[in-house]
Design a protein around this nucleic acid. Structure first.
Lengths: 149, 149
DNA sequence: TCAACACCCTGTAGCCGCTACAGGGTCAAG
DNA sequence: CTTGACCCTGTAGCGGCTACAGGGTGTTGA
């Protein structure tokens, strides 16, 4: 049913941009499909499935290399699955760390926005003053924030 | 006092990598310093200040272009400060949007991790099964999550 | 005296995950 | 027979660094 799709149709079916699909092919993430007589790519159901999987993982912010690893696991179900746990764990740790630093960031920024007075020129701007001052202050919370990621 | 610093010293003083400092110079964010007789860059107090400001803004995840704009405001205090408000506002909106999608992400991932059973091969892995299934499911929350940023 | 070492220089290429062209071909409808 | 939507390849660019290669400088200690 979902056979012999052209790239645009595959894109619509999975919600992935055409250029991105070609990029995935180039990097080996999505196998090169057959070609129809005119040279157009002709995708089958397996491609739809695989691309949907990729997109789902990307939505989970999993890197392309890790997605490749996961796809290898799918292809070789006899492998030890502990690696999958670890992959997801690592991902979770990464995400939580970023989450924490984003929260700190949000605090800083909304505090900053609160500094804006009613003056109309940059010289009197509370935000700017705060930014300049904070760049000096060693006690600023965001200085411990930089060694994230 | 903090005059005639070499690039390594400036780096230490501000916590910015040497290569990054040179990159900032190349992109015009940090003005090119004088050179000492041997051709080494010789930084002054103004550079320390400016670089600290840049670093602080980067910690707030403000883009280099916007930092340039802020520095222009600092240099021209007579400008209308409404633009600064708007810049910070935009930044805050960006950060909050990302924060929300990161939170959704964290939920997804920790749910995923919970799916891991005690099986030892990838074929039985609950995480992998969930990922494959979720890629199909249109009802999956993370599909609405992709149009973030 | 001279070798080891830390530091500096320029320039270029690579990272990730796309995105945006340029410059062409294919094909169905009006 | 022309318009327009779609497809092709290939390359370059984005942001914000990071990592070389291939060289020079300057201090320290054997």
């Amino acid at each position: 049913m979902s056979d012999n799709l052209r790239i645009g149709e595959l894109g619509k079916a999975t919600g992935v941009d055409i250029e991105t699909i070609r990029y995935y092919e180039k990097t080996g993430l999505l196998p090169a499909p057959l070609r129809s007589a005119n040279g157009y790519r002709a995708y089958g159901a397996a491609h739809v499935e695989r691309l949907a999987f990729i997109r789902h993982c990307r939505a989970l912010d999993i890197g392309l290399k890790d997605i490749k690893r996961l796809l290898d696991f799918v292809a070789h179900p006899e492998t030890d699955c502990g690696d999958i746990d670890r992959l997801i764990d690592t991902q979770l740790i990464k995400v939580r760390a970023r989450l924490a630093s984003m929260q700190a960031l949000e605090q800083q920024l909304s505090a900053l926005r609160g500094r804006c007075g009613t003056r109309r020129v940059a010289g009197d701007c509370g935000i700017l003053q705060e930014l300049v001052a904070a760049a000096h202050g060693e006690a600023c919370a965001c200085h411990t924030l930089t060694s994230e990621n």
